[in-house]
Design a protein around this nucleic acid. Sequence first.
DNA 1: GCCAAAATTTGAACCGATCCAACGAAAGTG
DNA 2: CACTTTCGTTGGATCGGTTCAAATTTTGGC
Lengths: 361, 361
Amino acid sequence: MAPLTSAKTRPVRLADIAKAAGVSHGTASNVFARPEIVREEVRERVKAAAEAMGYGGPDPKGRLLRAGKVNAIGVATAEPLSYFFEDPFARVMMASISQACDATGAGISLVSAANSEQLAWNIQSALVDGFIVFCVDGGSKLVELARDRKLPFVALDLDSDDDDEAVAAIGVDNIAGAGLAARHLTELGHRRFAVLALPCADAGFGPTTREQMEKALYSGTRDRLRGYFAELARVDIDISKVPIYETTNDEKSVWAGLDHIFAGAETPTAILAMSDRIALHALDWLRQHDITVPGDVSIVGFDGVPEGAVSKPPLTTIVQPIAEMGRLAVKAILENDGSPTSRQSLPVELVVRASSGPSPA
Amino acid sequence: MAPLTSAKTRPVRLADIAKAAGVSHGTASNVFARPEIVREEVRERVKAAAEAMGYGGPDPKGRLLRAGKVNAIGVATAEPLSYFFEDPFARVMMASISQACDATGAGISLVSAANSEQLAWNIQSALVDGFIVFCVDGGSKLVELARDRKLPFVALDLDSDDDDEAVAAIGVDNIAGAGLAARHLTELGHRRFAVLALPCADAGFGPTTREQMEKALYSGTRDRLRGYFAELARVDIDISKVPIYETTNDEKSVWAGLDHIFAGAETPTAILAMSDRIALHALDWLRQHDITVPGDVSIVGFDGVPEGAVSKPPLTTIVQPIAEMGRLAVKAILENDGSPTSRQSLPVELVVRASSGPSPA
DNA sequence: GCCAAAATTTGAACCGATCCAACGAAAGTG
DNA sequence: CACTTTCGTTGGATCGGTTCAAATTTTGGC
């Protein structure tokens, strides 16, 4: 084949325009990186050559290798990428992370490890200066992978049991928070409880037990349950009778859970929901079944997402300092050069709104 | 200074462990990239060396340069990064973009060009295989920068006037959509209108005019206005009397706009809101001022965000095929090797819900 | 017009990997 | 035993830039 035009249009490199302009590539590089140190005449010549050859500026790929810094932080989760835009908790967290990044000019790379095949690879090949790992589920595997990259990283809401390793982690005291929720309801006179739990095992939902929940993948789940039950036990409620329904944090499983719970003879007057998302779906179910909140049933969520403030009725919940957590996480990545800092546990707060009231009993 | 331990802990490179294991760097590379072609004994030796020296696997920076593909697409906007998580329209769009990316295993890099200093740099240095540009505002500058990278890119909702250049763009027919909204209201008998507009000039809000709006930075704004007025004029409404209030798409400016509009002697019975976000804020204002919707005032939004379906009352709006747009955009990036494809205009649809009704007059 | 100082430009080294042609050794074949 | 294959390994080229010490040109002073 004779060269028709130029066959494969191989992208123009800096070296090409250097040659075309008759300067060394060192000078060509300077034209783009530090134009002020290049004589004007030469600068114009190089720029003209670049223009003529359709050169789109120095390729960041090349620069990266030398500079070392990507100027972006990776946010990793074991959920699909859309989790970041659909889950209320994640959204609030991401909004605060992104504000912190904006302030410093850093970019954000979203990396998902939803299927375990790509999981490892996505994390291993992410071009980032550090990781923030969302540990909602399958956290420890993610943390391990992220740590193997030897980059600065922070785990959000890491497994509290997992502190054998010195990893930086930012979380809240789930046990105390759950205790707060339970106590709020017992103080209102409730004695018949039900728990709508976050996922425990892989991708299933249905009634479960305390023993089962102790194996939860994500320790936040475990800790919240422990917190609930410690408080209920404290006021002599027979915790063996409290139904626990494991959900997948979505409408379908929550509704199935409530179908199940309210099918029993002795229906609860108080529901402990492990996330606001669960609680909000529950509110929908209760409304559709003409069960008044908080008249017939009280419900307390967990997280403190903005939607909870405008739901019908507004949700009593345990609010996490989500924005603060995001800010701290970014700060930890950007200021930390790799060495793990200590784990931080932030306080949670009970915010009483209209979804909880005195027991009807 | 005598070398205490090893001074600056320079990160371990593949070459280091190759030396330590007594193999060539080619073989060391194979151990990680294609372990099956390396003899087991050697493989183990190299892995052991890597482990011992704390090597975190091949650095993607290096690989990138050779491989060329980043396996991530960049999503750019002139808004702050948090826009992606806070704006309802952006969220829905991002959710669909991220689903498409998940399906192909691509990552997502969020790049913001909120302040014009970083603007250029952030886009120029983003490590991505292509760009999806959100053109809500300041679109053309962004598009220009993105195009200069000579990477595949797609503009979402690009300026309709800007088609002098062959850029791939995916958008909706804003004029037709706005026309649909206006016609819906005129068919309900409305004659007194007000328009709550999207930002037109830089970062300001207040009453404005049609002439002013023609200069809108973002042509979607311009086109929607044209669509509204073309329809109103068609049914002989005196469009010179229709107040236009420019908002910044947030609560404060929308409320100020309504304060302004309803302070006048002849209050409107129908409000054309250029975005659902504006419409939803307006709904709040109207409720607080005991103006019933749609009894006293009808309102029609634009975009079709999910929140509109659950507002009080549910919002009549022009829905854009947001998910479809996201899917097409990702497809265009991933399948396109750089050459711009044609612009596509997707159809919009009027969805009548409860925020619009017959004129009270 | 000569020399030192200042301003530019050069070219090689480097960033951290992957890829591949070539080579050596072990295994298989006649 | 010489002769192909096959398998594993090597080392150099390459990706596309940045950086910096040294070389070169300009400028300024006298």
